[in-house]
Amino acid sequence: MVGIVIVSHSKKLAEGVVELARLISGECPMVAAGGLEDGGFGTSYERIEAAINSVYSDDGVVVIMDMGSSCMTTEMVIENMEGKKVEMIDCPMVEGAAAAAAESESGSSLEEVKQAAIDAAGESKF
């Protein structure tokens, strides 16, 4: 299964998104990388790197970020993981995470998981 990492400035937010997506998919490897080492707000290169490694398999990993430095720091982590199958998804965090989790659990490829999360952005809520 494709691994999923949720990156946020907020530890609580990242964990909350994982918690919510878990209701949809209990099986897929999914982990939060939120906040700084000391629990404060911000993005941590080390925490993101460790999170990706913790859910990594040959199926690859997708990363969903909130904004600003979450994206830039993740981009740098991925640049330094040359040869590994890791991609960022440009999608809303909650909807994207739910869609990606469901897709991953059904055994889809990284490309399919990515597309499912992107498509989730196009769905109107009401």
Partner: peptide, 13 residues
């Protein structure tokens, strides 16, 4: 990059 924690980290880094 590894310690700043905000956008200025990856940017100045």
């Amino acid at each position: 990059v590894s310690t700043v924690g905000g956008s200025s980290g990856p940017l100045y880094g």
